[in-house]
Simulated scan of single mutants.
Amino acid sequence: MMYLPLLFVLFWIVFSLAVATIARAKNRSGFIWFFISFLCSPLIAIICVNCLPTIKKDGATQTSHSSIPQVMTALLRDCPECAEVIKSAAKKCKHCGSKVTALEAVS
Rank of each mutant, 00 (worst) to 15 (best):
Met1His: 06
Met2Asn: 11
Tyr3His: 09
Tyr3Lys: 08
Tyr3Trp: 12
Leu4Ala: 15
Pro5Ile: 12
Leu6Lys: 10
Leu6Thr: 14
Leu7Gln: 08
Phe8Tyr: 14
Val9Leu: 14
Val9Tyr: 12
Val9Ser: 14
Leu10Ile: 10
Phe11Asp: 10
Phe11Cys: 14
Trp12Leu: 13
Ile13Ala: 10
Ile13Val: 09
Ile13Ser: 05
Val14Asp: 02
Ser16Cys: 06
Ser16Lys: 09
Leu17Glu: 07
Ala18Phe: 11
Val19Thr: 12
Ala20Leu: 03
Thr21Val: 07
Thr21Trp: 04
Thr21Asn: 02
Ile22Tyr: 06
Ala23Ile: 10
Arg24Leu: 13
Arg24Met: 14
Ala25Glu: 14
Lys26Ile: 07
Asn27Gln: 11
Arg28Val: 04
Gly30Asp: 05
Ile32Trp: 14
Ile36Cys: 00
Ser37Ile: 01
Phe38Val: 04
Phe38Thr: 01
Leu39His: 02
Leu39Met: 11
Cys40Phe: 15
Ser41Arg: 05
Ser41Tyr: 03
Pro42Gly: 15
Ile44Ser: 05
Ile46Lys: 04
Ile46Thr: 03
Ile46Tyr: 07
Ile47Glu: 08
Cys48Tyr: 14
Cys51Ser: 15
Pro53Glu: 12
Pro53Phe: 05
Pro53Ile: 07
Pro53Gln: 10
Ile55His: 07
Lys56Gly: 00
Lys57Ala: 10
Asp58Cys: 04
Gly59Arg: 07
Ala60Leu: 14
Gln62Glu: 13
Ser64Gln: 07
Ser64Glu: 10
His65Asn: 10
His65Lys: 11
Ser66Tyr: 12
Ser66Ile: 09
Ser66Gly: 04
Ile68Leu: 11
Gln70Gly: 12
Gln70Phe: 14
Met72Phe: 02
Met72Glu: 07
Ala74Ile: 09
Leu75Lys: 01
Arg77Ala: 07
Asp78Val: 00
Asp78His: 00
Cys79Lys: 03
Pro80Val: 03
Pro80Arg: 00
Pro80Met: 01
Glu81Ala: 08
Cys82Trp: 07
Cys82His: 07
Ala83Tyr: 02
Val85Asp: 00
Val85Leu: 03
Ile86Gln: 01
Lys87Ile: 05
Cys93Gln: 06
Lys94Gly: 13
Lys94Phe: 13
His95Lys: 12
Gly97Val: 11
Gly97Asn: 10
Lys99Ser: 15
Thr101Asn: 05
Ala102Lys: 02
Ala102Asp: 00
Leu103Trp: 00
Leu103His: 03
Glu104Val: 01
Glu104Ser: 00
Glu104Met: 02
Val106His: 02
Val106Asp: 08
